[in-house]
């Protein structure tokens, strides 16, 4: 009986979590008439791919998808490279006057104010650099916003690793960077994977800066493109749902692929193994 109650609870949570996604998927497959049917037809309707065709062939959603993917991957990669190096030095080297800790806190503090605060200055900077409506602008901004997160996550992973291993590598004749590459990074790989997933998701979903910094199809990302179908005259539910359904896929696939590392990465240090 107790067991049944547990499953009932899980089922309820599952339905609440999945229902909106399911709703979006059905909308993307329904004709416009079916979309507004009342009562709504949850399961039985004639599926159509017209909205996918409309979004990705007639409109520029294919291009948005490419932009989103490029920007997410490049900004995540740069944030990981820069952030990992910074985190490693912060975890391992002591600066005079406790500067290393102060520096870490300062890096973290850049995440403490609401993002909107920086929207206007960033817009002006990008305008002066002639980077408005470019993918480069988004890559730069996303890298900057992911950096503190990478630094703090990776710093924790590095700090937990015994120093002996790197020292052994140094005595064995390896350089600092060689020891980092051959000994340290393979050991924090789960943490690195978990961090990468979060960066990717943040970049992929980011809306505010993409909206402010891009107005043309040249550098529009999926979230902005989707939101742009809400216009003064009509709301293209079908197109939006079709694009939304596609937008879910990469993150879903990626998260499933690294799930093993994700759990290990997040619980790393919680249990000494």
């Amino acid at each position: 009986m107790k067991r049944a109650g547990k499953y009932l609870l899980l089922l309820t949570v599952l339905v609440i979590a999945v229902a909106p996604v399911y709703w979006m998927l059905t909308i993307s497959l329904k004709t416009e008439v079916d979309q507004f049917a009342s009562p709504p037809s949850w399961f039985f309707f004639t599926p159509t791919l017209e909205h996918f065709y409309d979004a990705f062939v007639m409109r520029s959603f294919g291009q948005y998808l490419v932009t989103s993917a490029l920007v997410a991957v490049v900004s995540t990669a740069s944030a990981l490279v820069i952030g990992t190096l910074a985190a490693y030095s912060l975890a391992r080297f002591r600066l005079p006057h406790n500067l290393d800790n102060k520096l870490s806190l300062w890096i973290l503090s850049t995440r403490m104010f609401p993002a909107i605060v920086t929207a206007v200055p960033l817009f002006l900077m990008m305008r002066d650099l002639r980077l408005l409506n470019t993918r480069a602008a988004l890559v730069i901004v996303y890298t900057a916003f992911n950096l503190p997160f990478v630094v703090w996550m990776m710093r924790g992973f590095f700090a937990e690793l015994p120093r002996d291993l790197e020292e052994a590598a140094l005595v064995d004749g390896d350089s600092r960077i060689g020891a980092l590459w051959r000994v340290v990074l393979p050991l924090v790989a789960p943490g690195l994977a978990a961090t990468a997933v979060f960066c990717l998701i943040v970049s992929w979903n980011e809306f505010l800066f993409a909206l402010v910094l891009t107005q043309t199809d040249a550098a529009m990302t999926l979230p902005v493109g989707i939101a742009g179908r809400v216009t003064q005259y009509e709301i293209k539910w079908g197109v939006m749902s079709a694009a939304g359904a596609v937008a879910i896929v990469p993150i879903l696939v990626f998260a499933l692929a690294v799930q093993k590392y994700l759990v290990r990465g997040l619980s790393l240090g919680a249990v000494k193994g």
């Binding site: 015994p162 002996d164 291993l165 020292e167 052994a168 140094l170 005595v171 064995d172 004749g173 390896d174 350089s175």
Partner: peptide, 14 residues
């Protein structure tokens, strides 16, 4: 360290 050409055995074996 890496240019001193000495080998070290650590207490933890490392």
């Amino acid at each position: 360290t890496q240019h001193r050409d000495v080998a070290m055995v650590f207490q933890s074996y490392a």
